[in-house]
Computed example of a mutant assay.
Amino acid sequence: MAIVLLVRHGRSSANTSGTLAGRLPGVHLDDTGREQVGRTGARLADVPVVEVVTSPLERCRETAEAITAHHDLEATVDEAITECGYGDWQGRPLSELAQEDLWKTVQGHPSAATFPGGESLMAMQARAVEAVRAHDARIEAEHGPAAVWVAVSHGDVIKSVLADAAGMHLDLFQRLHVDPASVSIVRYAPQRPTLIAVNTTAGELGWLRAPAPAADAPVGGGAGPASR
């Protein structure tokens, strides 16, 4: 029952310009993004993070560095949690893409969306969920059931992992929102995953130092962490 903190990269130069960056190289955090990830790193400074896994793209690696700076760790790069392969959409303005017929499918029926020359959203979810669950099982085996680790990734990727954890069909994942530098928290357990938090950008996280909770869901909701 390890806990994964899903951290979206901070605001990037592409976010500011309204461009779908995809996997283009050279997309870095902007000034606001660097401030955002600095605050996220500070939020996680008192959390006993045992490992940080990051997408290989620069904006995620820069975000991961803001977290590992507070811990005696080096981030592990994993291509399986990289950005969706947007194919021919990559590098184009979002305002232009919103006029495409595929945009409506992405919004209303994402499980049917495949980007021209790229990846389907279903394939993106499958490889990201498989990677996160595999890392989680490995880290729990190595560090025990109270282990806390971080996965630094991208908005749509994190939303797809959260949808899986919530038992939501991918067609509902646009109901989720994940801001730059936000922290979402999932605990995987033998019975089911549990969504502990979604899209948090502020608040103390030291309560994650507490022992791992019981596997069963407490009837009535339980008392919560003592330090929260």
Rank of each mutant, 00 (worst) to 15 (best):
Met1Asn: 10
Ala2Glu: 08
Ile3Leu: 13
Arg8Lys: 14
His9Gly: 09
Gly10Val: 09
Ser12Cys: 13
Ser13Met: 04
Ala14Glu: 04
Asn15His: 12
Thr16Arg: 12
Thr16Ile: 00
Ser17Pro: 02
Gly18Lys: 04
Thr19Gln: 09
Thr19Ser: 04
Ala21Tyr: 08
Arg23Tyr: 01
Leu24Lys: 10
Gly26Asp: 10
Gly26Lys: 08
Leu29Val: 11
Asp30Ser: 12
Asp31Met: 00
Gly33Trp: 05
Arg34Ala: 09
Gln36Ala: 07
Gly38Trp: 09
Arg43Gly: 06
Arg43Glu: 12
Leu44Phe: 03
Leu44Glu: 10
Ala45Cys: 06
Val47Glu: 08
Val49Asp: 03
Val50Ser: 03
Val52Asn: 08
Val52His: 14
Val52Lys: 13
Val53Thr: 10
Thr54His: 03
Thr54Gly: 13
Thr54Ile: 08
Ser55His: 07
Arg59Asp: 10
Cys60His: 11
Arg61Cys: 10
Ala66Arg: 15
Ile67Asn: 11
His70Glu: 12
His71Arg: 04
Asp72Gln: 05
Glu74Ser: 01
Ala75Pro: 03
Asp78Ile: 07
Asp78Pro: 02
Asp78Met: 09
Glu79Gly: 02
Ile81Ser: 04
Cys84Thr: 00
Gly85Gln: 13
Gly87Lys: 01
Gly87Cys: 00
Trp89Ser: 02
Gln90Val: 06
Gln90Leu: 00
Gly91Val: 07
Arg92Met: 01
Pro93Phe: 06
Leu94Ser: 02
Leu97Trp: 05
Glu100Cys: 00
Leu102Cys: 02
Lys104Gln: 05
Val106Glu: 02
Gln107Met: 11
Ala112Asp: 01
Ala113Ile: 02
Met122Val: 09
Met124Ser: 14
Ala126Arg: 12
Ala128Ile: 03
Ala128Arg: 08
Val129Arg: 07
Glu130Asn: 10
Glu130Ser: 15
Arg133Tyr: 00
His135Val: 03
Ala137Asn: 01
Glu140Gln: 11
Glu140Asp: 06
Glu142Leu: 01
Gly144Tyr: 03
Ala147Gly: 03
Ala147Phe: 04
Ala147Val: 06
Trp149Cys: 13
Val150Gln: 14
Val150Arg: 13
His154Asn: 15
His154Met: 14
His154Leu: 14
Asp156His: 05
Val157Cys: 12
Val157Asn: 05
Val157Phe: 08
Ser160Asp: 06
Ser160Gln: 01
Val161Gly: 09
Ala163Cys: 07
Ala163Pro: 04
Ala166Gly: 15
Ala166Met: 15
His169Pro: 14
Leu170Gly: 01
Gln174Thr: 07
Gln174Glu: 10
Leu176Lys: 08
Asp179His: 12
Asp179Pro: 00
Pro180Met: 01
Ala181Arg: 12
Ala181Pro: 13
Ser182Phe: 05
Ser184Pro: 13
Arg187Gln: 15
Tyr188Met: 09
Ala189Cys: 11
Gln191His: 07
Arg192Lys: 11
Pro193Ser: 08
Pro193Lys: 06
Ile196Leu: 15
Ile196Cys: 08
Val198Trp: 00
Ala202Tyr: 03
Gly203Lys: 07
Glu204Gly: 04
Glu204His: 11
Glu204Arg: 13
Trp207Tyr: 15
Leu208Val: 11
Arg209Ile: 02
Arg209Lys: 14
Ala215Asn: 05
Ala217Val: 15
Pro218Thr: 03
Pro218Gly: 05
Val219Met: 12
Val219Ala: 15
Gly220Thr: 13
Gly221Trp: 02
Gly222Trp: 11
Ala223Glu: 14
Ala223Met: 06
Ala223Leu: 13
Ala226Asp: 11
Ser227Glu: 12
Arg228His: 03
